[in-house]
Amino acid sequence: MTSAISFQSVSKLYSVKQGGERRDFKALDAVSFDIAQGEFFGLLGPNGAGKTTLISILAGLNRASGGRVLVHGHDVQADYGNARRHLGVVPQELVFDPFFSVREALRFQSGYFGIANNDDWIDELLDNLGLADKANNNMRQLSGGMKRRVLVGLALVHKPPVIVLDEPTAGVDVELRQTLWQFIAKLNQQGHTVLLTTHYLEEAEALCTRLAMLKRGQIVALASTSELLHEASSNVLRFKLDGALPPSLAQRARVTGRIVQIAASSAEEIELVLAQTRQAGLRPEDVEIRKADLEDVFLQVMSGSAASMPGSAFGDERKQGGTP
């Protein structure tokens, strides 16, 4: 079966100036993986990992230095028209035409794809995205969250089989997130392929069936979400603390305000952490033990501490793969 998206040894070089000399910077380094039709796939990585560069190449907004990208078998460079018809992209940036109303913007977008009399689908988009009461408002009158809803509508107006969401919920309210994910989940259940990039890892864990993690332009993890979670540390000790942790614990802890989280694989290790905290004259509060989540996995992979873990999900940064 044809993959929905196929990245084949995709590389991207930029020429940058350093110390008066121009040098090549490799934003992507032979990235290869496939996304099956109907998958809800997550692409994760820190800022600067290469996610947006990869999405830009997929959307035809940037040209790869090497390799190729296919959308439903159509090369995004050699067969751009057909590739673009199969693709709907929601960008990070709020890009809009200030002279149109919401409905007019969606009608014009339909026209770009040669679709006439598209009002029934436009009405459905407006209703599902909570924009029905804003249909005749000028785009300049909308809040940032409402503008982002319109961007989703613009990406979906031609009913693409592949939907790409590049940080779609960045800086938006809870209501929009819930509305958006309910609608996207419904489209995915109807057979649409979804590629999501996000820094909200709880979203990726809840929505994505398979994940790839990028680091410095290379794939460092590629597996199902359940496999990644299974191969991570089994437990995380979480507690609140007033004061600084001892250096021996601070270097392995994730600290957010008063909340401390430390991976612990056994009851003995948990007790040792608590004992060392008490010996430092500190009093842990609200102590609890939970299973590792995707954020724990992500931090392990990015720090390199997952490289020695058993199994196929982690390991050599050059190890990449396709659909299972």
Score class of each variant (00 low, 15 high):
F99C: 04
L13P: 00
L126S: 04
S266E: 02
F239Y: 13
I5G: 06
K186N: 08
F99G: 10
A204R: 00
Q77C: 13
D29V: 11
K319C: 03
G48P: 10
L180G: 04
F298T: 09
R148H: 07
R252P: 05
I122S: 04
F7I: 13
R290C: 08
P284H: 09
L165V: 10
N82G: 05
R63S: 11
A292V: 10
T52N: 04
D296K: 13
R283S: 15
I55S: 03
T277W: 00
N128Y: 01
V89D: 13
H158Q: 13
Q276G: 06
L125Q: 01
V76Y: 06
E93N: 11
A36S: 14
E269Q: 14
G171Y: 03
N138V: 05
T193F: 07
A116L: 03
I57Q: 11
S248I: 13
L237W: 03
R283D: 14
R283C: 14
L131A: 11
E227P: 02
V150P: 05
T193Y: 01
M1S: 12
R140T: 15
G67N: 04
I163T: 06
M139Y: 02
V90F: 00
V16K: 13
Q279R: 06
N82Y: 03
A280Q: 01
S15C: 08
S226G: 09
F113N: 06
L176F: 14
R254D: 12
A27S: 10
H86Y: 09
I55V: 14
S226F: 00
S248E: 15
A267H: 06
P310Y: 09
T225V: 13
N62Q: 14
R210I: 05
S234Y: 06
K240Y: 06
D123C: 04
F40W: 05
S3Y: 08
L156S: 00
E124C: 05
L294N: 04
D296T: 13
A83W: 01
Q8W: 06
L151I: 02
L151E: 03
A170S: 14
N235I: 08
R258C: 04
A253K: 04
F33E: 12
A204N: 05
E227Q: 14
G315H: 07
G315S: 08
L176V: 12
Q189S: 07
G243I: 13
S305M: 11
G153F: 07
P46S: 10
D97V: 08
I163P: 01
Q37C: 10
V194M: 11
I289E: 04
L94F: 05
G315D: 08
A49D: 05
Q251M: 15
P310H: 09
L228A: 14
K17W: 00
L176I: 12
A250H: 01
D119S: 13
E317M: 03
L196T: 03
V172A: 12
